[in-house]
Amino acid sequence: MALTGLFLSFFLIIHLAGNLQLLLPADEAQLQYNSYSRLLGGNIFVKLVAYVLYASIILHTIDAIYLGIKSKRANGASYSRDKRGRASKWYARNMMALGIIIFVFLVIHFKDFWYSYKFGELPLDINGNKDLYTLVVVAFQELWYVILYVIAIVALGYHLLHGVFSAHRTLGLYHPLYSKIIKVLGIIFAVVMTFGYILIPVYIYLTHEL
């Protein structure tokens, strides 16, 4: 859980860095983004990493299901009156729910962009690269799509807020000072990722009028 989670978190940084190219002026962004996408698609190393990424998503999900079942089994009968929530953060208790939102989003996200790009028929840009840029920009013209995106990213943000620091604990970081540092870094990371990922669709929605 911790390892796959941390790997996925790491991937988020790369993914965000790449996608920030979408914020460039439209013409420049289109060409650069499309050629970047092609570069990723063609590189063997990137391909390997991509397989690790798919595997991580699957393992993270399976592990979550396993732990969910284990937790249910361990809990036995439930409390008729339950105020245990006062002792912990809501998002720490609801990692599974947050995870499900993220998972559903991922399915949509993969289908709309990844699947279309890999297996679909896309027009080419002037450089002869598949025009993923336009696909993205068009998609983000729909308000409901942007809202869906934002909700998913907020869920991801909270998932990260607990997940990153929790993963370090699982791996065994017990030193009080470093543990505190990781906690702060985890918060910064979650905030940056959340705003970074929200920025893209919102910016595109606001700046591109068709």
Binding site: S71, A87, A92, S166, T170, L173, Y174, P176
Partner: peptide, 27 residues
């Protein structure tokens, strides 16, 4: 069950045992 570091245990523990012990156990 497993630990998912909600840290509720330490808050309700009569002796305020630190959750860092769990990290140490994992280590």
């Amino acid at each position: 069950g497993h630990c998912s570091f909600t840290e509720a245990c330490q808050v309700e523990c009569p002796e305020d045992i630190s959750v860092l012990n769990i990290a140490r156990m994992n280590y």
